[in-house]
Design a protein around this nucleic acid. Structure first.
Lengths: 175, 175, 175, 175
DNA sequence: CATGAATGAGCGTTCATTCAT
DNA sequence: GATGAATGAACGCTCATTCAT
């Protein structure tokens, strides 16, 4: 998985499976002992990365805290994960738009992020997203987060500023 | 170009050039009379679609109107283009993440959208995006638009509602 | 023909017919008004070049002169042609080994060089080539000439020396 | 290599790689497991054939013998190789004029024939080739040999006679 | 006769996948 | 289970040749 992530980042999704195997230190044939096909590898990787991301975002979530602080904590965790794992994020971005990832996998990934989705649902009800559907609200929040991550990674000098501004937009959207 | 758009939507960027040629009603060899290579076709298509999108968004822009109305007009145009041309939008989404699209093409596309960028820059200065960099602000606005488009297309029944909600988030972000 | 010669020298026999047409200042389609096919063009060119070479070699042949002087005159003419027309020679060399040139063309070319062959036959009878067949003797003389030409062209500084040495070998072979 | 030799002889250098693979009893793709490209195959084959030819020519070279006998032995060996391996010879002829064979390969082939070149250099110094440059002398000798081979192969009935005559010309040239 | 766009067969090369060892 | 050579379908691209204008 790690090898696949590295290779996807540097070579894209069309990288030969042999390259991934080599990066993993196994023979090209052995790769197919663990994964039925290239598409299967990609689907499993997608799932793992999504789950990892969600878990990282929810790490040490403050239970009874002030709402703004809670949301900010979530936001910070998420951004922290992205900046600490730029490779995972870029691989995930590539996999997300691939048509090799099946609807089933996407659904499974969605389930993995159930807790995150619950939190987002909480955020939705209070503010101007009140009138949005559950999915739409989550998508808006996610896209704000994704865009912010992009800029934090590509412009690390202003990462903190981007992080704050991004959060401010989110906060405006949910209050 | 139209044929390529259709084929990209249904088969993805890895679709054989022969399929695109067939869809266009020409022979596989003829495609290379018009485009030097598959990558060249994709780059030209990307440029055309981006330009078309920008031009559609700016169509009949109200000059001396109230600011909120102006922004809403822009937003509506943009959404209108997306819902009327779902194929173009999907193709553009695929092309946008392809590594076949050269930096030069991306730069040229950016130039095409100069007027749009100018308007976004105007929006940035007034509200909570004030502290964001020019590029970051534009990216945030774009991602809000993209997400809204997605939901309008995939859930046409609630298209109008999504459109309104999306605009409300944007408005909150820029005021 | 001239255009084809130039193109063959610079690009080889696999050069596109379109390139030859362009070099000749005509459209790609027009080439096939004059030549049935690429192979036909090559065959005709081969014939023309061979004939030109033979004619040049026999130019102003001294009728009743001393034998050695006659042969030297022939040799000099031949070498003169080669050094003055390096492109023709190189094209001819390429065409000569091509399997596009039909046996019929080769036979016709042979006929074109009948006078030259007659002279060679005269040379054969006198010396150590006496026991060689007609064709073999001619081939030996030709190959000596070809090799000498090669070196005169590729090492023009010593062209004269090469010319003399080559002739000396020939003279030794036929006396 | 053998398959390639056979195919080149019958179809020329423009023969499809698939045909060569088929002739070798492997799949078209497998060919590229052993050779990086068609050109690579040709270069390796050229080298192998040249080396084989040189080695055959020098086989059992008589050390302290009479000079004429030594040269004749060399000549005989060379002719023997050619008549026993007409396919190799024809393939070599085709490869030799191909522009797929790199200068590097030609240089390497030249090195392979170093001993042969040394012998030729010895021959040069004694006779009428004395005034020729090293390379020119070798080229003259080679061309005499090549022409003789051609006739021995195409006219096997008189092979022995051709061989003798050819040698006589060579001997005249170097004494 | 000239043009040049259109044709489509053909080729070199890649790579996911298989399977004998 | 691990290996890596072998497979062969598939693809992007070229170019000799045709033919409507």
């Amino acid at each position: 998985m790690k090898a696949a992530t590295r290779v996807i980042v540097t070579q894209g999704l069309s990288a030969p499976t042999a390259t991934i195997a080599q990066e993993a230190g196994i023979s090209n044939g052995s790769l197919f002992t663990y994964f039925e096909s290239k598409a299967d590898l990609f689907n499993q990787l997608y799932l793992e990365l999504k789950a990892g991301m969600a878990s990282a975002a929810l790490q040490g979530f403050p239970a009874g805290d002030d709402f703004r602080k809670q949301v900010f904590q979530l936001w910070s965790n998420w951004m922290e994960w992205a900046t600490s794992n730029p490779e995972k994020r870029r691989a995930l971005a590539q996999l997300g738009v691939s048509d090799e990832i099946t609807p089933a996998t996407r659904a499974a990934a969605h389930k993995t992020m159930a807790s995150l989705a619950d939190l987002m649902e909480q955020m939705r009800t209070s503010g101007s997203l009140r009138n949005a559907s559950k999915g739409f609200a989550a998508a808006i929040m996610s896209s704000l987060a994704e865009t912010t991550m992009d800029f934090m990674i590509h412009d690390p000098a202003n990462a903190k500023k981007h992080c704050k501004v991004g959060f401010e937009i989110l906060w405006r959207a949910i209050t």
